[in-house]
């Protein structure tokens, strides 16, 4: 994937977040969907912009960190 493809994908994912917010969807489905999109965007930035795609060990490490952080966010958000 080139950085330009990554950029196009990031724009698409941002648009998806916006649509999701505009759709009026609420509750757990909305929370999870928004956080999954955020995680996907973060992963693209780390992998393609910051170049972790060439260092699989580190990419995996960051995947774990991101996943744990987003799960924590989801749990806290859904507890409200």
């Amino acid at each position: 994937m080139t950085v330009t493809t990554a950029w196009a994908l990031l724009i698409a994912l941002s648009a998806a977040s916006t649509l999701l917010a505009a759709s009026g969807l609420q509750g757990a489905a909305f929370t999870v969907a928004v956080l999954v999109l955020a995680g996907w965007k973060s992963r693209l930035i780390l992998g393609r912009y910051l170049g972790l795609a060439v260092a699989p060990v580190w990419q995996r490490g960051f995947d774990w960190i991101l996943a744990l952080v987003l799960i924590l966010f989801a749990v806290l958000a859904l507890a409200a």
Partner: peptide, 22 residues
């Protein structure tokens, strides 16, 4: 320099949904 800029980018894509959308 670009790596710093990507970090700023990365923080925003995590911050935006939490503060503005949830």
């Amino acid at each position: 320099g670009a790596a710093f800029w990507h970090m700023v980018d990365l923080v925003w894509v995590l911050l935006f949904p939490v503060v503005y959308l949830l």
